[in-house]
Design a protein around this nucleic acid. Structure first.
Lengths: 216, 216
DNA sequence: TCTCTTGTTATACAATTGTATAAAATTTTG
DNA sequence: CAAAATTTTATACAATTGTATAACAAGAGA
């Protein structure tokens, strides 16, 4: 028997390969079900590499969680900032980004929930969650404030924060139930639904976020 | 060495003991980390009983998920129906029930998330989730409709459903982030926050849900 | 082309897993 | 109070786990 042929990759390439393989396996099999061997196979390498690059399985899984959270926030952030037309536009597209692919995905929600389930009992996960949540709230506040300003609404720091907490709750909840797609309604209604709900949550005049446009 | 002394329990008692031990272990160790032996120890019995009462570990875990969902919904439902004073009261206390103990609990959220993470890949879990979600939406609609009626607002079936979907999202999201208690704000603000947000989400006049009362 | 570095594979090992089966103890029944 | 019924314990077993270590091979620099 000859050895497996292999190609050397750069540190970043190999790490990313392993991180994505880890996420794929965690989604399909859960945290413990995603064994080092399965992850390695998914990545097209052998199990020893996990130790080489991440020290241990735990190191890999923790990094994968941070990687996932970064992906989710960056996607919504990027899509919001593509629109320089105004505050309403940015907030609208931020909301839409959370209710459409690639963020509205069963796999991503499965991963997110699986990790969230461990936050209470694992301080590494707790740190990643807290930081991600704080960043997300801050980002939301920065999107909400100018919208309130444009409509001459109260926009104190405390006011913005409360709005951000509530709006984040709405996003999280709709994102999760919508991604799981229980079949009780079509995912296609979610963008419109969250925009209307967001308008009401922020006390904006009806239609001010949808801007008259219909997204298809 | 003599055998362990034991007491026979009725079928329901023993099952409930095992279900609760299973939930405790799943919360602490995750789905695979909650081994049959650990669950049995937590329940004060030996591992063989799991097979005797639930056929397999999977049977126990699946039952435990259904048991948890039933608990969560029943708690909020019961607390809402304690108030016969009117529709506003009932909806208010339903919302509060989701933002206070025992439902607002890190352990319960950890469990919920852990199970949700498997919904996509396990049809048994998917069935339990779909049914639970459907029941919850139906319950919410039944609470929302009379409130809309009391305020002379549009309350078609479609309207109520959209409101229920959005309000459920808000509840889920706030419940989850609030329970995890990242330390970014106090949980104590959640009941007021969800009531105000709920009012806006349903287009109710400000203060109509809080009814002037402050809950302490 | 040759050596050197180190990315990568291959193997070994103790620990733990779910489940199957047999033995024992408790409660119920007559 | 004896005996049947069945809950519960105890043990066995193959399979799988994470990690440690050693052997190998690919690519860089000379």
């Amino acid at each position: 028997m000859s050895r497996k042929a292999f190609r050397r990759l750069t540190l970043d390439e190999r790490k990313r390969t392993l991180l994505e393989a880890a996420l794929t396996c965690v989604a399909q099999e859960g945290l413990k079900g995603a064994t080092v061997r399965r992850i390695a196979e998914e990545a097209g390498v052998t199990a020893g590499l996990v130790r080489h690059y991440f020290g241990s399985k735990n190191g890999l899984i923790t990094s994968a969680y941070a990687y996932l959270i970064g992906q989710l926030t960056a996607e919504a952030d990027t899509r919001a900032r593509q629109f320089t037309g105004g505050a309403n536009d940015q907030l609208r597209h931020f909301l839409i980004a959370n209710m459409t692919m690639p963020n509205l995905s069963e796999e991503k929600v499965s991963l997110w929930a699986t990790f969230i389930g461990r936050v209470r009992y694992d301080t590494d996960f707790a740190d990643i969650h807290r930081e991600g949540y704080r960043d997300y709230l801050t980002l939301l506040e920065s999107l909400i404030e100018p919208v309130l300003a444009a409509h001459d609404l109260p926009r104190s720091s405390a006011e913005c924060r409360r709005h951000a907490i509530a709006l984040n709750g709405l996003i999280d909840g709709l994102w999760m139930e919508g991604s799981l797609n229980s079949g009780l309604y079509s995912r296609a209604i979610l963008p419109d639904l969250i925009i209307e709900a967001g308008e009401r949550l922020l006390n904006l005049p009806a239609g001010s976020l949808s801007g008259g446009k219909q997204h298809t």
